[in-house]
Simulated assay, not measured.
Amino acid sequence: MKLQDRVAIITGGASGIGRGIAHAMAKEGAKVVIVDVNNEGGLATEKELNEIGQGKFIKADITNQAELKRIVDETVQAFGTVHILVNNAHVSKQVMLTETTPEDLALSFNTSFYPTFHLMQHCYPYLKENKGSVINFASGAGLSGMPTQGAYGAAKEAIRGLSRVAANEWGVDGINVNLISPIANSPGVQKWSEYFPAEYEAMINGIPLKRMGDCEQDIGRVAVFLASDDASYMTGQTLMVDGGSIMLR
């Protein structure tokens, strides 16, 4: 039980990678708070987590800064503190750069970079007290410059920069800040594969391990590692959990 009695906040936890991480952490003894706008999915995941251990769903719009403080306050009210912050949520549109609008940029940054930044600020006192962990999310779209992913890649790279600064500033407090860059068989990817089977097959063939990652077993287990004492001497790092698609040098 690597995370016994530790309290984790996971944004975008109602489905996909967020849900996978929530399950993986709950199975290691964490008390897991999932945050999402999807009420039905959030309540269903909360029920699943409570069958494993302890879970709580907070319905919130993370584009609203006032909601971010409420998330932390309700977590502390329910479980006493915060040990782990997982900033997973992100919404973005896929369009070419010449067609990207200010609204497209705002959507990407308002659902990812700004909530990540402000939740880190709100959680800082508790993370400092507990020598806790922050897990943020990068993407191969930003690292490789994937076409149609200008707004998404820009926000992800901004999060990487923010994470490295936090790793340097908060290291003295015993807080580690790392990133996961995943490829996973999320519901969104599954739906995309139905509409674009040839592109999906090409993507699988481009992965050295020749398969999509599992949200819980592949991505969730790495998140457990980063939040555990096993990773206490790691900070400021981007872990490519993508089957070898991008090999950092």
Rank of each mutant, 00 (worst) to 15 (best):
L3R: 06
D5S: 12
R6F: 02
I10S: 02
I10V: 04
G12L: 04
G16T: 03
I21Y: 02
H23R: 15
A24M: 02
M25H: 08
M25L: 13
M25P: 05
E28H: 09
E28Q: 14
K31P: 03
I34K: 09
V35A: 04
D36M: 06
V37H: 11
N39K: 15
E40A: 13
G41A: 11
L43C: 11
A44V: 06
T45I: 06
E48N: 10
E48C: 12
E51P: 05
E51R: 14
E51L: 13
I52Q: 06
G53R: 15
G55V: 02
F57A: 07
Q65R: 13
E67C: 11
E67M: 08
E67A: 15
L68A: 02
K69E: 05
I71C: 03
D73M: 09
D73F: 10
V76S: 11
V76R: 11
Q77M: 08
A78K: 15
T81Y: 05
L85A: 07
N87P: 08
H90I: 04
V91N: 13
K93T: 14
V95Y: 05
E99H: 14
E99G: 13
P102K: 11
P102G: 08
E103V: 06
E103Q: 14
A106Q: 14
S108N: 12
S108R: 01
S108F: 03
S112K: 13
H118M: 11
L119V: 02
M120K: 07
Q121W: 06
H122L: 09
H122Q: 13
C123H: 07
Y126G: 10
L127I: 01
N130S: 10
N130M: 01
K131Q: 15
G132K: 04
S133A: 15
V134E: 01
N136E: 01
F137I: 01
G140K: 13
A141I: 04
G142H: 04
L143E: 14
M146V: 15
P147R: 06
T148F: 12
T148D: 12
G150A: 14
G153A: 09
G153R: 01
A158N: 07
I159H: 06
R160A: 10
G161I: 01
A167K: 07
W170P: 05
W170T: 08
G171Y: 14
V172F: 09
D173T: 12
G174L: 01
I175R: 02
N176V: 06
V177F: 00
L179D: 01
S181D: 04
S186M: 00
P187F: 05
G188L: 05
V189Q: 14
W192Q: 08
W192I: 04
F196E: 15
P197N: 00
A198I: 14
A198C: 08
N205W: 10
P208F: 13
K210G: 11
M212I: 04
G213S: 14
Q217P: 08
Q217M: 14
D218G: 12
V222L: 03
A223E: 03
L226G: 09
D229W: 08
D229P: 09
A231S: 09
A231R: 05
M234C: 13
Q237I: 07
T238G: 09
T238S: 09
M240T: 11
M240F: 06
D242S: 12
L248R: 10
R249M: 12
